[in-house]
Design a protein around this nucleic acid. Structure first.
Lengths: 204, 204
DNA sequence: TTTTTATATGCAAAAGCTTGCATAAATGAT
DNA sequence: ATCATTTATGCAAGCTTTTGCATATAAAAA
């Protein structure tokens, strides 16, 4: 068992904190987005700004590349759809193979990943000269989270007011949304704690 | 301004939710880890299991590659250190240029990044056949977070019992730690909510 | 009528990260 | 003596992601 020292204090790392490597979940995120409705790359990129994309962002290049790969692997099928007033689009849908692969993936163990938030790294660099900048950044973050929470709450009230009565899959989506809401609420609270602390430093 | 539909509900995306691209923060995370003490790649990889690494993980290969790049850019210097009973190590330290670059980086705007948690994607795939597996995964996640929280709390009590009396940089580290603690507490609460909901589905 | 905006898709190169392997010194265990 | 483990560093191939174009249709605005 591996041990490390944190300032005279010895800590034993639990084995599950180490890398047990999973492929990417981008492909699964895309397939998941296609469970109920077929979509084009462009629509996916947009829907990633809402719904699943509340938790999983991807650029359009990433999406197009992944769609190409997934359809080469027969996990997705594609068809061109003519539109009036717009260029044609290529709509992707899950194949039976894709649905099976997705269901199997659910059973594979997933790793816990840490936040990787730039702001936390920045806080390690806090000093008298940048306190006011940190306050500004935290305020921006706070505003950002507020907006996100507002959106989440609207979705919740509109579509998940009575979660117990929803079909099972929707209850899962609800739990993910709830995770987003709880996380946002917590982040907001932390911002306020941190801002209070920073304000007291700044006034010294 | 870009708009998208979420189930009949129109939402206007705020501009800051889009990609404004930052380089990587791995290099900054490494430089930050070297602010107070010089370290070898091996020591960095280990310290990434504690301290900053509570929030930012990196493999040893990633670290060695980054150290090489950073010293080529004159942001770090290196020296070989002989050890008794162990192979020699190469110890890296921040150069003046590195310290300046780090201080400047703090002022660059950082993006908010979403969770990218596999578990949330899996929840979108919830159905009658995998409810019990989801419960198992959530219980595992809960256990994992508990352990992490326990570690955080130990560190907090041992080194940050009276944050106001700490030097400024340490107060920043404390705020990051507090973020980890608050986030863990929230995640734990959400796990319990979700487990309760899943249990009620499973018993139907 | 030209320009801008939204829709729609993609390539190619570069950068970054993961995976698998390889090496080596020193200690301790068999 | 040999083997396993810990400490310590790194290469090379492959995969993923980002960055920077590039293209094209159609509507709307200037």
């Amino acid at each position: 068992m591996q041990a490390f020292a944190y300032k005279n204090e010895w800590v034993y790392a639990s084995s599950d904190s180490l890398n047990d490597n999973e492929p990417m979940a981008l492909s699964q995120a895309i397939m998941t987005a296609l469970i109920e409705d077929d979509m084009s790359g462009y629509e996916l990129a947009q829907s990633f700004d809402s719904s699943l994309g509340l938790f999983w962002r991807a650029s359009h290049q990433q999406i197009y590349q992944e769609l190409k790969k997934l359809s080469e692997q027969q996990l997705l099928n594609k068809r061109e759809v003519s539109q009036s007033g717009k260029p044609n689009k290529i709509v992707y849908g899950l194949t039976l193979l894709g649905r099976e692969a997705l269901q199997e993936w659910v059973y594979k163990e997933s790793k816990v990943q840490e936040a990787k938030d730039d702001l936390l790294v920045k806080l390690y660099n806090l000093d008298a000269s940048n306190v006011s900048h940190m306050i500004t950044e935290l305020e921006g973050r706070r505003e950002n989270i507020m907006q996100r929470l507002y959106l989440y709450e609207r979705i919740r009230r509109r579509h998940y007011a009575d979660p117990d009565s929803l079909p099972i899959r929707r209850q899962g989506v609800y739990l993910a949304l709830l995770g987003g809401i709880r996380n946002g609420e917590q982040y907001l609270g932390w911002c306020d704690e941190a801002l209070k602390q920073l304000a007291s430093i700044d006034s010294d």
